[in-house]
Design a protein around this nucleic acid. Structure first.
Lengths: 238, 238
DNA sequence: TCAGAATGGTGATGTTTATCACAGTTCACA
DNA sequence: TGTGAACTGTGATAAACATCACCATTCTGA
């Protein structure tokens, strides 16, 4: 490991002021692995900051299919889509992949605090704008170059969010099954498997002993989907 | 025409205070049909409110393909993705479909004004939150049910944004060519044409004399893509 | 340590969607 | 009012992707 991950959590992206505010007005709780922090349709009066653990944000379809949208870890803010909204229901599911320690922040309290401090507001709006930009670029990536584009985009985003630079490439420091990747791409496990094997044969990626993905030629992935010069803070998982 | 469109523009969604603020700090300009208000990569120091006209927001790919993201008319805010962001370049293209009258607002001036007035901040964050939710649901719709899902979602969104209720259905009061719809769905003109004709044969839609789309059975479209009970302010074009 | 579960891998086959090619129709405007 | 441009419609064919079926491999917990 030559260099630690360059991923910035939500809390790292926003200022220390906001961070300490969030921590000062919050309580904590612990949730077990393989349980939901919240589910679609539930009333949303709180939002959360992950102190420790791993949470998957997803959306379910009627047929039981699942689309993964984010994978969140320490420092990330979860549940943000309900802020300042009358419609107080979650649209998404938050599922704990590991045991988590969570800060709980009351939505109306945060709203109150934000409105009384314009510097915090500025930080928060900046963060929201960034989420908007990320989502815009995701729409393009998932839709414009078929499933291959969706996969390449997902790999690039994971690399930017959770990658560790190594001498022979960039390691996605996270255990990802074919099935999980498929859920980010809205593709089937089998298609993802075939495409990953193609990338292996071409030498673009490599699977490590701990079955993590090592990206040896990220430039190939980028040029294939035409995100050659897109800003690195946009091409991320959350 | 039994009932006027229920579409709310951005300005209608946000408060009168913000509306008048936006108008007070803006200058105006006029741009011709078939010209760009701004293009990807350009420096972004301003954002815009449409006073009159029609603007298409899109994203181009390297191969010259185009993905339509929004169609904006009177009252809509354009260029919002650059707010509160260091990255001062537009990610999208704004193309005038009709001659437009536009309010120009300096980005830093708006940021300053917003931060000095917490009620306006509240409104603005609420509006941004809503945009985020719309984008989330668009990702799902475009990706989860194939091109048919993308088409049905696009029709529903246009119906909600630009529809006029009539005795025999809901009329999308806008001239949409197959090619334009295709750009919203990231599909080909031919595929859209075939799918629309299938819907015609099934009696789900009907084309009026002015070649506008009349949706006779929106319930069918909704159930097919599983957005039967999604809030109407989320299933919109912008 | 061993049985069952989860995951990875791959062929065969069918469906969806794009591509190409071209003819018919409508529209804009000189 | 006629003519080129834009749009619609449709068949034939190819590529992308899903589905199904099945076996190999790895992981996991009693």
């Amino acid at each position: 490991m030559l260099e630690s991950t360059n991923r910035k959590s939500d809390l790292e992206c926003i200022s220390d002021d906001l961070t300490s505010l969030l921590q000062s007005i919050s309580t904590t709780k612990t949730i077990d692995a393989r349980t939901f922090l919240f589910q679609e349709g539930e009333e949303a009066h709180e939002l959360y900051v992950i102190q420790h653990g791993l949470i998957q944000i997803s959306k379910l379809t009627q047929e039981g299919n699942e689309l993964n949208l984010r994978t969140c870890q320490e420092g990330d803010i979860v549940g943000e889509l309900t802020l300042f909204t009358d419609e107080a229901k979650y649209m998404l599911n938050a599922y704990a992949l590991k045991k988590c320690k969570i800060l709980i922040i009351q939505k109306d309290q945060l709203e109150k605090e934000l409105l009384s401090n314009s510097r915090l507001t500025f930080e928060f709006m900046k963060w929201m704008t960034n989420l908007l930009r990320i989502n815009q670029s995701k729409i393009k990536d998932l839709v414009m170059n078929g499933k291959k584009g969706a996969l390449y985009s997902t790999l690039i985003r994971f690399s930017n969010s959770y990658g560790i630079q190594q001498k022979d490439g960039r390691l996605i420091d996270m255990h990802l099954t074919n099935q999980e990747i498929a859920k980010f791409c809205a593709a089937t496990r089998e298609s993802i498997n075939r495409m990953l094997n193609d990338l292996k044969k071409k030498g673009i990626i490599q699977i490590t002993k701990e079955s993590k993905i090592l990206i040896k030629d990220i430039h190939y992935l980028r040029t294939e989907i035409g995100c050659d010069h897109c800003p690195i803070d946009i091409c991320v998982i959350d």
